[in-house]
């Protein structure tokens, strides 16, 4: 139990990870965004008297993106000089190892959203939404029969609430579902 609880603690209560390569990449992306905002803002018109109009606020933001990204880089450089923290331990002194996460499932969520956008107007809400539910539950190890029943019931329920109850014109597709 001790070891199990320790892992839970790390997953749920602490959010910080040491500054690393990702911070530099992230800061680089935001600096690029700041430069991009500045570049695009030159196309915006100016107010009477030559004062900046629509471009003023975006330019301030572009500058702030660059400024704060540079601070993130500086923080990263400072933290990389400090020695790494010792491995986390639970109450019994056992080293806690966080298991690798399943990032494919996160990618799958994006794929399913994209598939829903592309297919719902053709196949209709019930088929596409039901398929999204079924595929994700299948990837999360829900047993096939249980999965099928839950997907069918839940999608019909969501359809009833939104399409019938709230009168939202959900995509109906060729079957008019």
């Amino acid at each position: 139990m001790g070891k199990r609880s320790g892992r839970f603690r790390l997953l749920s209560l602490t959010r910080g990870t040491p500054m690393g390569k990702n911070d530099y990449i992230g800061a680089g992306i935001f600096i690029a965004l700041g430069v991009f905002i500045w570049a695009v803002s030159f196309q915006f018109p100016v107010l009477a008297g030559g004062h900046p109009g629509p471009s003023l606020f975006p330019r301030v933001l572009g500058t702030l993106f660059i400024f704060f990204s540079l601070i993130v880089i500086l923080e990263g450089r400072r933290k990389s000089k400090t020695p790494p923290a010792p491995a986390a331990e639970d109450e019994g002194g056992n080293v806690i190892i966080i298991r690798e996460k399943n990032y494919f499932n996160a990618v799958l969520v994006i794929i399913l959203i994209a598939a829903f956008i592309a297919l719902a107007p053709h196949l209709g809400f019930i088929i596409t939404g039901g398929a999204v539910l079924f595929i994700l539950m299948w990837k999360l190890h829900v047993k096939p029969l249980k999965n099928l029943i839950i997907s069918a019931v839940v999608i019909c329920l969501i359809y009833s609430v939104f399409a019938k109850g709230l009168r939202v014109p959900l995509p109906h597709g060729f079957l008019w579902w």
Binding site: V109, L112, I113, F116, F125, G129, V132, L133, L136, M137, L140, H141, V142, I150, V154, I155, I158, F162, L166, V168, L170, P171
Partner: peptide
């Protein structure tokens, strides 16, 4: 593993609505 896919579907439907 059942709740999270339902949240995804409700979120997509809600955003569309």
């Amino acid at each position: 593993n059942i709740l999270v896919p339902i949240i995804l579907t409700v979120a997509m439907t809600g955003a569309f609505a």
